[in-house]
Amino acid sequence: MSRNLQVAAASVLIGVIVLALKGAAYWVTGSIALLSDALESIINVAASLAAFFALQISGRPADDNHPYGHHKAEYFSAVLEGVLIVVASLSILREAYYGFLEPHLPEQPLNGMLLNGAATIINAVWCVVLLRIGKARRSPALIADGKHLMTDVVTSVGVLIGFVLVPVTGWPQLDPILAGLVAINILWTGWGLMRESVGGLMDAAPPPDVVGRIRELVSTHAAGAIEAHDLRTRHAGRMTFVEFHLVVPGDMTVAAAHVICDRIERALEEEMDDTIITIHVEPEGEAKHRGVVVL
């Protein structure tokens, strides 16, 4: 089992533990706000399972039907997670509405705070781990899972603060109002996840700093060539695809041009893991005098 799959499997286990703690917190208190937190944890478990299966698919090698690999499967996981977050937020809004119509003070508030607080601490620690590993391994599925947990941690802290204020103020309507605010917050997060994932499915380019670094490496290691133009890049899961046209002197041999291409590819692969590079070599008559200037 790969490192990414191990992390995804651990996310499922941790999600179940957190769900059990938050479910218990709602059970002993009857708080609508704590119910909203528990509902979000159900989505966490479902999303973690989706990420696990997506990582299994994305790790498969290229085949005849998928010659560029299966890396985009991770984006489907992130889109699904965004959809699940939207469904959860609508469910929470429904519960908050009925809770506002028939408000009541939570029972056993101390036990509820302890259970929910323990779940929040576990989520906070695991969120940091997920984001760190996801960014290091450029995994959209793990990053999406980590961002969702980050939102869960923030909303859980807000729920706990509000939960303390309910018995202090003696205003039971504060509980469903807080649940509604949680729903709006996670709805915004779900929209952000879907927007980023759709960008990946649409072959969006890497961040400008990454594209700039690619241009710099091509310029520095293309000695002997004239120019490079029509540079195009895209992301597919953890993979970065780079392609461009390399213009060389008309009397240069194929072997000499191949040496330049090898040098550029080696430089890009050393700097950027999981990179697929395609270079189209052209004679100097095809020069466009724009694009990447060879140093």
Rank of each mutant, 00 (worst) to 15 (best):
L193N: 06
I226F: 09
G224M: 12
A183P: 11
G190D: 10
T169H: 11
W191H: 13
F163R: 04
A223C: 10
P208R: 03
G212M: 04
M202G: 06
M194K: 04
P176M: 07
P206K: 05
V153L: 08
S197F: 07
A183Q: 10
L193Q: 09
R213G: 14
S197R: 03
G190C: 13
E227M: 01
V211A: 13
G158L: 05
I161R: 03
L174Y: 00
A225V: 07
P206L: 10
F163S: 02
L201S: 04
S156L: 12
P172K: 04
G212K: 00
P207A: 15
A179N: 11
I177K: 00
G158M: 09
A179K: 07
N185P: 00
V153P: 06
V211G: 02
D152L: 06
P208V: 03
D175C: 09
I214T: 01
T155C: 09
L178M: 15
L165S: 10
V153K: 01
P172Y: 07
T220K: 15
D175A: 11
G180R: 04
G162V: 03
A223W: 09
G190A: 13
A222M: 05
T155N: 10
S156T: 11
I186H: 03
V218L: 10
W188S: 10
L178N: 09
V218R: 05
L181F: 14
N185I: 07
V157C: 10
T189S: 14
S219Y: 07
I161M: 11
V164C: 13
W191V: 14
G158N: 04
P172S: 08
R213V: 03
G200L: 11
I214D: 05
E216D: 15
V211F: 00
E227I: 01
G158P: 08
G162C: 01
A179V: 03
S197N: 04
R215S: 15
G158D: 04
V198C: 05
A223E: 14
V159A: 13
M194I: 15
S156Y: 09
V211Q: 09
G199C: 11
R195W: 10
A225Q: 02
P172F: 08
L217R: 12
E196M: 01
H221D: 03
F163V: 05
L181Q: 06
P208F: 06
A204R: 15
V154H: 03
V210E: 14
L165I: 12
L178A: 15
S197Y: 08
G199K: 03
W188H: 09
V182K: 02
T189L: 11
G190F: 13
W191C: 04
G212S: 13
H221C: 03
M194W: 08
G170I: 09
V198E: 00
V211D: 08
L217Q: 13
L201D: 05
R215V: 03
W191M: 11
S156Q: 10
A222R: 01
S197I: 04
G199Y: 07
I161C: 13
M202K: 07
T220L: 14
G200V: 08
D209F: 10
